Amino acid sequence: MKPDFTTIQRIPDEELSPKEIRYVALVQVDLMALYRRWGRPDIGVDALAEWLCFAFALPSGEKFTLQREAYNPPTPGFLLSVTSTLFSAEAAAQVIEALDIPEAFAIELSSEIAN
């Protein structure tokens, strides 16, 4: 069954375990564009930093998140991490499109899937 990207919904960041997601792409998307379309980011904290997080779920249960360091992001974009079913270049492109932010695009793909 192919994932349905037509009805993504925002979920609390706590619903995603770091163990169930993998980095797939660096996405250029403006924080304010995400804020206007999807609301305030969740704030996550780990041993490294404080993170701005936007977590989502598809109707079929797949999940993904956009994260970036809150205060001193080392890159201009957000890290896109996904559950295993979405770990492909094609699915990453569909996720970015489903965000409904026309100017969002992948800057780079994970070396595990990049050609």
Score class of each variant (00 low, 15 high):
A98T: 09
E62L: 10
I21M: 03
N115E: 14
A49C: 10
T75R: 14
V29E: 02
L80E: 04
E69C: 07
A25T: 09
F54C: 01
P41I: 09
Y35E: 13
R36Q: 12
G44V: 11
S110H: 01
L109D: 00
F87D: 00
L66I: 07
I11A: 12
Q94F: 03
Q9C: 08
E108R: 12
T7M: 11
E69Y: 04
I8H: 04
F64K: 05
P59D: 11
V95R: 04
I11Q: 10
A98E: 09
L16E: 06
R10E: 06
W51R: 07
P3S: 15
A98P: 14
G77A: 07
P18V: 09
G77W: 00
E50G: 07
L48S: 13
F56L: 04
E20S: 13
L52R: 08
A92M: 06
Y71L: 06
R68T: 07
L34N: 02
K19Q: 12
L48F: 15
F5L: 04
E14T: 14
A98F: 09
F54Y: 15
S84R: 07
V27T: 07
D13N: 14
L58C: 12
I113M: 02
L48V: 12
V29C: 09
L109F: 11
W51Y: 12
S88R: 02
E112I: 05
G39F: 12
I8D: 05
F105H: 14
S111E: 13
L26N: 06
K63L: 05
V95Q: 05
A25S: 13
Q28F: 15
E108P: 00
G39W: 12
Y71R: 08
L80R: 02
P73S: 08
A106S: 15
R10D: 05
W38N: 03
E69K: 08
L79F: 07
S88C: 04
Q94C: 07
F105S: 13
G44D: 11
A33L: 10
A114V: 03
K63V: 10
D42W: 09
V82R: 01
V24N: 00
A104M: 06
Q9I: 10
L34P: 01
V24D: 00
A92Y: 03
E69I: 04
F56C: 04
N72S: 14
P59V: 09
V95G: 04
L34S: 02
T75L: 14
E62D: 15
V45G: 01
A91M: 06
F78P: 00
R68N: 04
Q28D: 15
S111T: 13
F78G: 02
R10P: 04
I107T: 09
E15T: 15
I101C: 03
G77P: 01
F54V: 01
V95T: 10
F87V: 04
Q28N: 15
W38A: 02
P12Q: 13
E20Q: 12
P12H: 14
E14C: 09
V27S: 02
T83K: 06
V29K: 01
L16K: 04
P76W: 06
W38S: 02
E14I: 13
S81H: 08
L79A: 12
L16A: 07
T7K: 15
